[in-house]
Lab assay of single mutants.
Amino acid sequence: MAAGGDHGSPDSYRSPLASRYASPEMCFVFSDRYKFRTWRQLWLWLAEAEQTLGLPITDEQIQEMKSNLENIDFKMAAEEEKRLRHDVMAHVHTFGHCCPKAAGIIHLGATSCYVGDNTDLIILRNALDLLLPKLARVISRLADFAKERASLPTLGFTHFQPAQLTTVGKRCCLWIQDLCMDLQNLKRVRDDLRFRGVKGTTGTQASFLQLFEGDDHKVEQLDKMVTEKAGFKRAFIITGQTYTRKVDIEVLSVLASLGASVHKICTDIRLLANLKEMEEPFEKQQIGSSAMPYKRNPMRSERCCSLARHLMTLVMDPLQTASVQWFERTLDDSANRRICLAEAFLTADTILNTLQNISEGLVVYPKVIERRIRQELPFMATENIIMAMVKAGGSRQDCHEKIRVLSQQAASVVKQEGGDNDLIERIQVDAYFSPIHSQLDHLLDPSSFTGRASQQVQRFLEEEVYPLLKPYESVMKVKAELCL
């Protein structure tokens, strides 16, 4: 049975990233139509530049190519590739079939990587351009969430054990800070992308030097003109047959890092959902379990974690691919890159769409948070109580021993009897502590235990987050809708 299948058929496997999760716009960027249309555009740009620099290419040939950029006979191309065992030459023939007058000058002087690699770089750039505003929107939604809850005390956790208090907004800023680093890295790697350009079979530009009869300047002009037509500021000066596969490492490393950030955020949300302090959106008709109707599973956060793990592992592909590119190139890269580049971007696209949807509907339960604080705060307040007693004339050592005994009794009630923490009640009825009984409410005010959390939130948002989001103001209103 021949390899390949009808990918629109229910009898043929289709990647869930495309069929179930990723956005239509990201799927289109990695589609065959987008790819092969870009090949034709690159052939047109090459012909236009070659004509401008004096090669015998007519206006009629150029116009014929322009008129057929979208006229792609995919069936013919597939048949040609089956016959020739070469995808680029299959599309040269297919393009030439609908451009008979231009057929002889299509791909003039070029090698397969002229269309293959340059198209990949265009796709990487455009895919990054799709991700950047999506990530900015996630940051914006979380920034709104953090600002609104900047002063809401909550129990902090280290080692997932109760620690000092923080605020809900401050905790959210930990998430935002990681995503801001990801946004900066995505922008950097996007701006650092260079075009492969017009380089020939081993990167020496020998074929173009021959076409222009040894004119170095025209060869350099050709490279520059096509690079500018493709919208790049610069091209690699040095290439082998391909652009260095280190570029793929750079791009997928940034995406993998984004995956790590999203995994951490969504894990926190899942843990908070278990504590009943916070939940992701839950639709009115949504079913959490087929057997347990009360369940409210954090399905979206779980999906993000599941896909983020996949995204983090994909960076190993370009690392290994770059390491086995012998001399000017081997074909070890080809099949692998067809999979890992598309999957990385479709996965990143999915987790950003999902995280935006989550961040637009996060639900906080202040009463649950308050109750958990009441359970733990008495123990945390013991040092403040000791200091207040010393100020009232008591002995630190005597007070410490009193607190120690009462704390152990209260802990026994919590752990052995399943009761509430009654340390404060014990202190309130103990005559030894009568000098500070009137101060206990103040000493137990949760806001006095959150330090500068709310001020940190305000400063972080104003100095770091809002300036970073400013270039994306025009796209901030787009909502994230999930079908599944």
Rank of each mutant, 00 (worst) to 15 (best):
V262Y: 04
S9E: 13
L186V: 13
M299P: 07
I122R: 02
A322W: 08
L135R: 01
Q205T: 08
V315C: 05
D144F: 10
A18V: 14
K134H: 13
A3L: 13
P378Y: 04
L406N: 08
N68D: 09
L319Y: 15
R309N: 06
T58G: 03
N185S: 09
K75E: 13
W175S: 11
N185E: 12
E60A: 06
P56W: 03
R149V: 08
H107K: 06
S112Q: 01
R83S: 08
T201M: 00
L174G: 10
A322D: 04
L461N: 14
R85Q: 05
S412V: 15
T202M: 07
G200D: 00
T350L: 13
L443N: 06
V475G: 13
R190I: 09
G109C: 00
A230T: 08
Y365A: 06
R234V: 15
E328S: 07
G240W: 03
L469H: 05
L377G: 03
D398T: 13
V414H: 09
K75F: 06
Y21S: 03
V198T: 12
Q375H: 09
S301T: 01
R303V: 03
K224C: 10
R190L: 13
R83Q: 06
H7L: 11
K224D: 15
V413H: 13
T313W: 07
K66Y: 08
I269S: 00
G393T: 14
S15E: 11
W43C: 02
L352T: 15
T450R: 02
D441Y: 15
T166M: 02
F145Y: 12
T330Y: 02
N336V: 10
P16I: 12
V368K: 06
H217R: 08
S67G: 06
C180Y: 09
R171Y: 00
E462W: 15
L346F: 00
P293A: 12
T382A: 06
A308H: 06
L484Y: 11
Q397W: 00
C304N: 14
D332H: 01
Y294Q: 00
D349V: 05
F345D: 02
D332T: 00
S323Q: 04
T201Q: 02
E220H: 11
V247Q: 09
A2M: 13
S447Q: 12
R141L: 07
Y114C: 05
G169K: 00
C399S: 13
L468V: 14
A3S: 12
E464N: 12
T158I: 00
E328G: 05
H97V: 15
R194K: 14
E383L: 01
C304I: 08
I403M: 12
E283K: 13
L482I: 14
Q164M: 11
E302H: 15
M76P: 11
S438V: 14
L307V: 11
D182A: 05
G5Q: 09
S434K: 12
D182H: 06
F30A: 04
P378R: 00
Y21T: 02
E277G: 01
V363S: 04
S447I: 09
C483V: 14
D192P: 11
L484N: 08
K218V: 05
K224F: 03
A206Q: 15
V414R: 04
C483G: 13
M316D: 08
R329I: 00
I122T: 07
P298Q: 07
S301F: 07
I105S: 10
L209Q: 11
Y294P: 01
H107M: 10
K82F: 13
C399Y: 05
K82L: 13
K415L: 09
R33P: 09
L165K: 07
